[in-house]
Design a protein around this nucleic acid. Structure first.
Lengths: 205, 205
DNA sequence: CGATCGTTTGAGGTTCCTCAACAAGTGTGG
DNA sequence: CCACACTTGTTGAGGAACCTCAAACGATCG
């Protein structure tokens, strides 16, 4: 399947596909990071997902192309697969089809988890859950800290709360000793159970 | 594929599969309604999805079985498909595999829409979006009114707001002339554009 | 150096949640 | 048949959480 891929390098702010583009390609993040956005009629933007290395996207049906994807990290590498080619491959190679189905199922599971996250009661819970999610998905640097590739504004948009509330929640978590902040973009989880409290332990194993 | 199905009749409150059950089956709602729940460690319940006729569910990977499904309408009919049988069929019949992928992709699109719904600013927007969603998915009675199979408590849980707020929002929408209430469970949409205002028109075509 | 962006903190207002009460419908037992 | 408990839905009052507006700080860049 990788033989069908085209690899491209992007810079921050570049948009992969706008909402009206025909969804003729599937994409995969190789390195870097991007955000999947839904732009509403009134101009408001909502971030539906962060795309990190390994994530497959663009494989929706008619709805998927209602989203646009914007790169947020310099030098992000993204692979592009022609849709028809992949679908033919999926029908001739059962293994490929199965892999695609499983990827889709995992996306569903992740989305449902995120819905519970969004439904969380307090802003502190949302930010805590967000950090735990990033700790699993994101890369980790030398001192075991999470590198957050996105800005506070992006986080706020993603969690459906105000920027100031994100900032306050992070300060509160630091004050409690649950996390430590190096850069604003580097977070080290000190007390994992403190982040988990108020959330369900069973969710992120 | 329907030859593999087992059809069963359920009553309100019955649970289809608890969180720890091995996910050996796929399910489809034939008639009636059910709710997909995530039960948290602290006992709180969160409704992740309402399952209406035609909806396929249970097809997640390891995460999916973290949910339980409870029937909410008397006499709900649900078809059950053995998982392994369907997967074998998907690998031997490309058409079946493709259909399953498309179903999964549509689920993803619906979930992403619902995430935007949950991220909506006000409670009024959430309830409006919920009614529009139900108007598309739910059955319609003789006078063109939506039949809501779920209680206000279920709606509140689904939208992550308090029961009282749901009730107040519905009253507010009725006062504005956007909807009319027969029973509490029967809602007729009078002014569709009034519900849409504040939401993006492009979403639910 | 000035300007802009990203982040953090403070003050005030609004929405929504919590607690409470009430109304209507349903089932049960005396 | 009626009293009673129970469920579901609606409405009101008070308080808490969060959003909005505002300002300050550091960093980056032209």
């Amino acid at each position: 399947m990788e033989q069908l891929a085209t690899l491209t390098r992007y810079h921050p702010g570049e948009t992969l596909y706008y909402e009206d583009d025909p969804a003729d390609y599937w994409y995969r993040v190789v390195s870097g990071a991007a955000r999947k956005c839904a732009v509403m009629a009134d101009g408001r933007r909502r971030i539906v997902d962060f795309l990190l290395p390994g994530d497959l996207f663009g494989f929706g049906t008619r709805f998927e192309r209602l989203f646009s994807v914007e790169v947020i990290v310099d030098g992000t590498m993204i692979a592009r697969y022609p849709r028809r080619g992949v679908e033919q491959l999926a029908e001739s190679e059962p293994e490929v089809g199965r892999r695609i189905r499983e990827t889709a199922f995992e996306s569903i599971a992740r989305l449902q988890w995120r819905m519970i996250l969004l439904g969380s009661a307090t802003a502190l819970e949302k930010v805590s859950a967000f950090l735990l999610e990033m700790a699993e998905r994101s890369t980790v640097d030398s001192v075991n800290a999470i590198i957050l590739p996105m800005s506070r504004y992006d986080i706020a948009d993603y969690l459906a709360i105000a920027v100031e509330t994100v900032s306050r929640a992070l300060t509160e978590l630091r004050r409690k000793g649950a996390i430590a902040l190096g850069d604003p973009r580097r977070v080290r989880i000190v007390d994992r159970s403190a982040l988990r409290s108020g959330l369900d332990d069973g969710w992120r194993a």
